[in-house]
Design a binder for these strands. Structure first.
Length: 332
DNA sequence: ACGGTATGTGTAATCTTTGT
DNA sequence: ACAAAGATTACACATACCGT
């Protein structure tokens, strides 16, 4: 910057004003400075700027499992919005391990990110909650409960909406014995399971078994093996997560089960695999890009005071059930 | 509309004091 | 004399503020 100032024959402060769009700049000054900037190929040092203005213009995004394609979409949505606002994304992956979440929260803090977006492995983990409580920067949780005593915003889905519709659809097709493969303690798993169980509670002869475990392909695989080994098999399986769906479909294929005939199946998230599967898989669909975008918007409301002061504390987006041939009338 | 200058940042390197 | 602890400064840069 000093070299630019010398080359342009002006003061460093003038260079600063030109580059940060300060109003007190004449066209002549702007021209002189920009000329020197181009000649020297000068680019402001973001680290030095951060030192000076106390902001790094970076946002941390702690992801529970980066292998989950839905999270890739959420990140895409968030990054696009943040980039437009001049922020860069710093990504961490916790590989489904809550301990890593804790490490990443403090790591992002030490990296002086201006705010964080968190898709936590387990938002009820006491140490995670403690870490959130002492985190000073603005926080947005993606599709997680907001723990007590933590001031954060949230961008979530109404999982119950799509799950209720899916369950009702299966009931209308005559199904009464359900199996629900679900995740761990996090909000989407809890909400999906609750929606299914509440819907079935209104139907006297309906029964169901839940297979909680975690959002992994492997759990989906094992749960289906367990389900198929039963004496009185369920006639409908609901996989409460896209990776669970993937694992479940693997086991079903290996077992030679033809979906839509003996067994109806509902998965989660409208990934290519669901539509391209034979038969196509009914799913509960959601707009993951939109929730990423919403999370970024909420965070920006905190990062840029005055921009959107009356932003809501929480944004909840809908989910919808998409009926496809993997659901068929129950065998009699 | 401009120039000059003090300021702030966190750590590592360097210098100074203290203790044994 | 030497180690350890404590204090200061260098670093690299951009910007806020003040004065003209």
């Amino acid at each position: 910057m000093r070299e630019v100032a010398e080359r342009a024959g002006v003061a460093m402060s003038s260079v600063s004003r030109v580059l940060s769009d300060h109003p007190d700049v004449s066209p002549r000054m702007r021209r002189k400075v920009m000329e020197a900037v181009h000649e020297l190929n000068y680019q402001p040092d973001i680290l030095a700027q951060a030192l000076r203005i106390g902001k790094t213009l970076s946002v941390g995004f702690a992801v529970s499992d980066i292998a989950n394609p839905v999270l890739a979409e959420i990140i895409t949505g968030a990054e696009k919005r943040l980039r437009a606002a001049g922020y860069s994304l710093l990504l961490t992956n916790s590989e489904g391990n809550a301990e890593l979440d804790i490490e990443h929260i403090s790591l992002l803090e030490r990296r002086r990110v201006d705010g964080v977006i968190l898709s936590l492995v387990d938002e009820h983990h006491p140490d995670v909650v403690a870490a959130l409580r002492q985190l000073a920067c603005p926080i947005v949780l993606v599709d997680r409960d907001i723990p007590d005593g933590v001031t954060t915003r949230g961008a979530s889905f109404d999982h119950a909406l799509g799950m209720r519709a899916a369950t009702e659809h299966l009931l209308e097709l005559g199904h009464r014995r359900f199996a629900l493969i679900t995740g761990g303690p996090e909000r989407p798993a809890r909400e999906r399971r609750q929606a299914v169980e509440e819907t079935l509670a209104n139907v006297p002869d309906a029964e169901h078994t839940a297979y909680p475990g975690g959002f992994s392909v492997d759990h989906g695989r094992r749960a289906v093996l367990e389900i198929l080994a039963q004496d009185s098999r369920p006639t409908a399986i609901i996989a409460g997560g896209n990776m669970l769906m993937e694992g479940a479909l693997m086991s079903l294929r290996e077992a030679g089960v033809r979906l839509g005939g003996d067994l109806s199946f509902v998965g989660c998230d409208d990934l290519a695999v669901a539509e391209l599967h034979d038969p196509p898989i009914a799913v509960v669909r959601r707009d993951s890009f939109a929730v990423g975008d919403a999370a970024a918007e909420l965070l920006l409301a905190d990062l840029e005071p005055g921009s959107n002061a009356d932003a809501p504390r929480e944004i909840v987006l809908p989910t919808e059930f998409v009926a496809r041939p993997s659901c068929a009338p129950a065998p009699r």
